[in-house]
Amino acid sequence: MKAEQVKVCILRMEGTNCEQETYDAFKRLGASPEFVHLKQLEGRDTNEGENRSLEDFHILMFPGGFSAGDYIRAGAIFAARLKASIKDDMVKFIEDGKAVGGFCNGFQIMVELGILPAFDSTMIEHPDAVLHANDSGTFECRPTLLKHVNKGKCVWTTKLDEGELRLIPSAHAEGKFMLPHGSQEKEDALYQRLFDEDRIVFRYADTEGDTDAAYPFNPNGSRFNIAGLTNDKGNVFGMMPHPERVFFRNTHPDWLRNRIGPSEGDGRSVFESVIEYVMENF
């Protein structure tokens, strides 16, 4: 398949607001992204020709933002509406090996939907993890350094080497990844599974690459500095930081310190990886 045949559904509803830069990232690499409002998948209040079906796409993208204002819990309303309308389509989409990704609010929606971490099935009924309020208690927009720790499972980061550091910014109020399962033993065991099953993709690190680094390197207090995860198949991927904001070097916070550098930003490879995955497999 050619890049232009890779169809990307940039899903939005009220409060989604990182859709333009997410769209731009796919477009710049030659893929064919389309903005799709949730109602176009639900078939509600739409005219003829406006309805869309998930099966027409290869990549489903949940952009960042504040879907429905994040008023109940970040991502909860968007997830509830999706489950009520196109749950089966989504399960099939994932089981067909197509790619699903979410950044920031997108990641929160995916956790609420039960497709991440989704320990024992494609989409579980009740979320098995939570992205809790940051330890600082407030929204924070700051640079974060991510260590790519995935050993090859995640199709969204195949262009990154294991151990590589990437400067990709964070901007959220609820990003502390937790696995609240009642007892410390159960939780520890689940974290162990994430490590054993190569499900952890990015961890916050300091400039030395230390993944135990505390605030501000770990902006929210996530245990094990977890910043991004994939599902068991490796095709569903969510992360709190925003790779779409650093597609080019000129949106890095320190790019003017070294004028003769690459023009590619640290987030670009995420998009390149998933487009290549679709081109090779569909």
Binding site: N17, C18, Q20, E21, D24, G64, T138, F139, E140, C141, R142, P169, A171, H242, E244, R245, V246, F247, N250, T251, W255
Partner: peptide
């Protein structure tokens, strides 16, 4: 300013 998202839209150079 850390509590304001100053980078959304991805064009703040």
């Amino acid at each position: 300013f850390r509590t304001y998202d100053h980078e959304v839209r991805g064009r703040t150079v």
